[in-house]
Design a protein around this nucleic acid. Sequence first.
DNA 1: GATTGTGGGATTGTCAACAAGCCTCACCCT
DNA 2: AGGGTGAGGCTTGTTGACAATCCCACAATC
Lengths: 221, 221
Amino acid sequence: MVIGTRFEPVHQESTAALIARQLREAIMFGHLAPGSQLSEAELSAQFGVSRGPLREAMQRLVQEGLLRSEKNRGLFVKVLDADDIRDIYVARSAIEGAAALLVLRADDAEAISEMRAVCEEMNRAVKRRDKVLMSDSDLHFHEILVRRSESPRLRRMHETLLVETRMCMTALEDKYRLPAAVVKEHFRIIDAIEQGDEALTLRRIEDHMQDALTRLTAVGS
Amino acid sequence: MVIGTRFEPVHQESTAALIARQLREAIMFGHLAPGSQLSEAELSAQFGVSRGPLREAMQRLVQEGLLRSEKNRGLFVKVLDADDIRDIYVARSAIEGAAALLVLRADDAEAISEMRAVCEEMNRAVKRRDKVLMSDSDLHFHEILVRRSESPRLRRMHETLLVETRMCMTALEDKYRLPAAVVKEHFRIIDAIEQGDEALTLRRIEDHMQDALTRLTAVGS
DNA sequence: GATTGTGGGATTGTCAACAAGCCTCACCCT
DNA sequence: AGGGTGAGGCTTGTTGACAATCCCACAATC
């Protein structure tokens, strides 16, 4: 049999992966509050599975650093203190800086335009004062940047960092606001990539992260 | 009660964490060959536990990217192809570059001297032609560099990358050799950090990674 | 009255058995 | 001969029950 299209192998997701993903979302949006204990009995009942698969899923999140395990006591949602928030942005700088350089060196016009498109979307959100769409497209921009680097490892590491970033934003509720200037910073990062200026790209990403961090910690105090 | 020393909370490791660590080592040194399937029954017998805790440990390694899960088929040790090896070094450049900048900015003389000490150790290994000690202290240098950045997230992400790096080295057995020039490159990275030259530091780390990559892929072909 | 034992209740940790799915290979039909 | 097919065996997936541990409240003691 000769066919034109390639078939991807059927990567059916394991139950643990499925539950882990749902737990991750719940943590991300604060449905599972930071510091709170995860009751195996309760959660397994909610998901309609027994404790076995649930525990497997939770081990994934422990490895990811989203849960903290205390033996014979239970699993707790990680609480992010000021040091953690700083560290998240340090790590994001590292990952996103490297990703940007990869995009830059690949000279991928399509990637550039996709990133611009997301920025335009965020621009519309700003004009409409749609705070939810704003933060969504903010994170989306960073996700696309890393995805376009075509590096599976950068991508995977960044995924967790974005979850933690969202955790911060959720924890601070609407005590902080995303200024319109962020969009401009995104555009300037794209410009730097397009110009092929590596040092400038790195500097702008680092500055962007520093700004975000200042915004978050200023509110927290 | 007032005491002078602070007590760290007792972080007793969970069984899953313990088994995961042992599995990680087994993978690292090729005792579990890349591509091979992990039999739950066999492994649980070896570790003297039932399949429950073992499965939890394996989920951690799946999340870490060291194992590949195929539903209803089993778990397999990830095989690293050429793309993976390239990606490992891309990710390591990102992490170690960022770590080096943190050390640089902290202006931590103690960190510098610890890194130099590890290099001296590697130098001795080179002189003694001790190949095992050479690769050990090679990886040790990079580990210390990241540890000294004081960033838990960089540290955690780097840990997995070093396991994968060791996997590569193990897979290629002694078909490749670690040239003495590597030590010199390490020293030059430290020098750049000490001088406080960020651009130079990044360039030297990236070059060092590129060299290592070339060494590995040249052998593989 | 503060501190130290002690029991109840609840939660996690572990296990062994059961259910479900995949691979192999012999068998049969065309 | 070649390919479908189905039974058997083995592996993973899931479950419910049991054991171990911890927390909390209460009582006993100095």
